[in-house]
Design a protein around this nucleic acid. Structure first.
Length: 771
DNA sequence: GTTCTAGAAC
DNA sequence: GTTCTAGAAC
């Protein structure tokens, strides 16, 4: 014992020896503060609660402030609660150095996400939708990233609480702890994964790999969202978490097909400003060399991903330097572009889809200053600041931090940006503190480092979203209805080739679909039209019979005036009706009033204007409904009905009656459907998958494909029998009732691909901004 | 597209 | 015994 201490008595030394650090781990609303309060109220031990939310004179402070206060309290012999989320290992690491290793405890408040969300909503005070939504998004996001603590991090004791009664037991344990007492070491309360649920899911997924194996396929790129699932036995959405992770690692599940549309613009894209060349006055020549060098390095590493250097001013010198140098290096112009425009309005202002945007941040990672940093924080709304602070408190030059953007952010809804990467470059501005005094050796080094960190951050996002961008596997992609265009032709030539082919196709079929507004009534009652000449399809090979039930839409489109009670809108081109068996709160159909357009497979380039009209009408109704109920999110699209596989065609040629191949309603119709899928009519796998797999073709993508290639790609009906997955968090569910109960609660953000290209329509405020 | 129902799955 | 799916009829 230290004999040098003048003032400290033996008793105080004892106290100091037994002072402990308890790191609370839990999402907002998990009850960390309440836990501390309960213990502190009755404990005979002296506790100090270090709460990051209030440490700055009652307001939120920094991690450093927490560390300092905790160290001071420990020095005074007080025990310490670290009351902040501490959900990942990195966040906990600095606090681990505080106390005696034998008295480092963690108490994990691992309660159901739903509970945390409802508590944090209440705590926000004003419970508007936005607040609620924001709280839910924050909690969900944090829980997705959570890494449960392990003894190997340096804890002597970890207590897992997965229910209110667990929490109460832990409160009792710590409350009873006198100044001299200690608690046994070890890990307590962590329940084993529910084997039954797990088995069911595994069997259901027809996988034999253990989830742990499936998840741990890493590559050398640093993955900012990778989590160690070995310890994940929490009760919080366990099934969901495993389901998602499983698929991320799995290689051949039907999953990938849902998100993979054939749209070329569904390409992961990073938009970034030139780092350090504006306010930090970095030499433009040198900076442009480094940009080109780093892009060249990563462009090959990252497959089909695109990089876009963005600058607001049209005469931008850095852009022209970079363009020239990229040209010299023969960088694929399809993968590296320069773009003049507002980096916060790339899609809404420039039709350029970028799912990741880099921010030239300041070291404090705070809004303000000018230029890109101010613009991005302002466009993204306060949720970016919150999400950023969850990831890091500050940033060193040459470093970057990836921040998933909450789905409540306008940048997310409006622009389809799912992540912001803050990056800090070297400072060459003599008017600013800590500038590098003309030291370009160091400066270039730091700038290189900054771009590497940025691009690696982008790579980590791609890796975590890999499955969303993967092409369908051959097994699932037996998508026939042979398209005239090979979708894999090189980008550079795709437009010219496609146009030529489409033109030939157009000539060949130009007589097919003629607009026929004055539909004659005599045909409309032909309900058994097996020999109906109109059903003849000009691609020559088949005529098809439609069952009586399948003709109802055709009859409405033909004679809307006879169905006045059902029809909501009529024009020369379209008729709008409610779906007779709605699969969501709002589900309506925009019918095409064209003869010969029985289904999506019949649509050609000459019908593009019609598709646009249908889309606009659909949009109008979606907007009307979401203004009435802001919770409703809409999706517009077509069913891929009836493409024949080669096997199907062969069968057709051998056997004549093909009624069974006509599963859907006759007459091209656009579904406008709200995404909560709360409907008693949604009863089976086919219902779900027809709106939540690649079978559902988004209207925006269909229009684009028709425009570019003259045809829409269709998916085989096989995918309708694939497993049931939540359209938001992608978790798998064994049957419809279980899926429905899950989607009733799931508030996870939608998959990145759905948020792009305006595939999902969110409610807008009066001033036109998305919520 | 839905409804009905046998029988599989739980 | 009850729940749920999937195939046939319409």
């Amino acid at each position: 014992m230290d004999v040098d201490g003048k003032s400290s008595s033996k008793g105080e030394e004892e106290k100091k020896k037994n002072a402990m650090v308890v790191i609370l781990v839990g999402a907002p609303g998990s009850g960390k503060s309440t836990f501390c309060e309960h213990v502190m109220r009755v404990s005979t031990r002296t506790w100090v609660r270090i709460c990051q939310d209030t440490i700055g004179n009652g307001k939120a402070g920094t991690k450093t402030q927490c560390l300092t206060s905790a160290a001071t309290a420990l020095k005074d012999g007080k025990s310490v609660f670290i009351d902040r989320c501490n959900l990942d290992r990195e966040q906990r690491a600095d606090f681990m150095k505080l106390g005696n290793p034998q008295d480092m405890h963690a108490v994990v408040l691992d309660l159901p996400a739903k509970l945390c969300i409802s508590r944090s909503v209440k705590r926000e005070g004003h419970e508007g939708n936005l607040q609620g939504g924001r709280a839910a998004a924050v909690v969900n996001r944090m829980l997705q990233k959570k890494e449960l603590p392990k003894l190997s991090e340096g804890f002597s004791r970890i207590t897992f609480c997965q229910s209110e009664s667990d929490v109460q037991a832990a409160i009792d344990t710590y409350s009873a702890l006198g100044p001299q007492n200690t608690l046994p070491s070890g890990s307590f309360g962590q329940k084993n994964p529910d084997a039954k649920v797990q088995l069911g899911i595994m069997k259901f997924l027809k996988k034999v790999d253990s989830p742990v194996n499936a998840v741990s396929k890493g590559d050398s790129l640093k993955d900012s969202v990778s989590t160690d699932k070995e310890n994940d036995s929490s009760s919080i959405g366990r099934e969901e978490v495993k389901g998602v992770e499983e698929v991320k690692g799995g290689e051949d599940l039907a999953f990938s097909s849902l998100e993979s549309t054939s749209s070329f613009d569904n390409v992961p894209t990073l938009a970034f400003p030139s780092i350090s060349t504006a306010d930090f006055q970095f030499d433009l020549e040198k900076a442009s060399d480094i940009i080109v060098e780093k892009v060249l390095e990563f462009v090959t590493k990252l497959g089909n991903a695109r990089f876009v250097l963005v600058d607001l001013s049209s005469g931008s010198k850095i852009l022209s330097l970079v363009r020239a140098k990229a040209g010299e290096k023969n960088i694929d112009s399809g993968k590296f572009l320069t773009f003049v425009g507002d980096i916060t309005r790339l899609y809404s202002g420039g039709r350029l889809r970028c799912n990741v945007v880099a921010n030239a941040a300041n070291w404090r990672l705070k809004p303000g200053g000018g230029g890109v940093n101010a613009a991005i924080f302002s466009a993204a709304g306060p949720s970016l600041e919150t999400a950023t602070m969850e990831r890091a408190g500050s940033l060193a030059p040459g470093k970057a931090v990836v921040v998933p953007l909450p789905s409540t952010s306008p940048l997310f809804c409006r622009e389809g940006v799912t992540h912001v990467i803050h990056v800090l470059g070297p400072n060459m501005n003599p008017k600013r503190p800590n500038f590098l005094n003309k030291d370009y050796k160091k400066g270039c080094e730091v700038l290189r480092e900054a771009y590497s960190a940025l691009f690696e951050g982008f790579a980590s996002i791609l890796k975590s979203q890999k499955t969303f961008y993967e092409e369908p596997t051959g097994k699932l992609g037996s998508v026939q209805l042979v398209s005239p265009v090979d979708f894999k032709i090189p980008r550079k030539n795709q437009f010219s080739n496609a146009d030529q082919k489409v033109k030939r196709e157009d000539v060949y079929e130009s007589e097919r679909n003629k607009k026929c507004k004055g539909l004659h009534g005599s045909q409309t009652d032909a309900t058994n039209g097996n020999d109906d000449a109109q059903n003849e399809k000009s691609n020559g090979s088949m005529s098809k019979a439609w069952g009586a039930w399948a003709q109802s839409l055709y009859r409405i489109a033909t004679n809307p005036e006879k169905h006045k009670n059902d029809v909501m809108e009529i024009s020369d081109d379209i008729v709008v009706v409610n779906d007779l068996y709605p699969k969501a709160k709002r589900h309506l159909l925009v019918l095409a009033r064209y003869e010969g357009l029985d289904r999506l497979a019949d649509v050609r380039k000459e019908n593009l204007q019609l598709l646009r009209t249908m889309h606009d009408v659909g949009l109008k109704w979606a907007e009307k409904y979401s203004s009435e109920d802001k919770m409703l999110i809409f999706r517009l699209g077509y069913h891929s009905v009836c493409s024949l596989t080669p096997a199907g065609l062969l069968m057709f040629s051998l056997t004549v009656p093909l009624l069974f191949l006509a599963p859907s309603m006759r007459q091209l119709h656009l579904h406008v459907i709200s995404q909560e899928f709360d409907s008693k009519h949604l009863k089976n796998k086919k219902h779900w998958n027809s709106f939540n797999s690649a079978f559902f073709r988004d209207s925006v993508d269909v229009m684009e494909e028709i425009d570019k290639f003259g045809r829409a790609t269709l998916k085989d009906e096989d995918i309708l029998s694939m497993e049931l997955r939540c359209h938001r968090c992608r978790s798998a569910h064994p049957n419809i009732p279980r899926l429905k109960s899950h989607i009733g609660n799931c508030r996870a953000p939608f998959p990145a691909s759905l948020l792009q290209n305006g595939r999902l329509l969110f409610a807008t405020d009066k001033d036109g901004t998305n919520q």
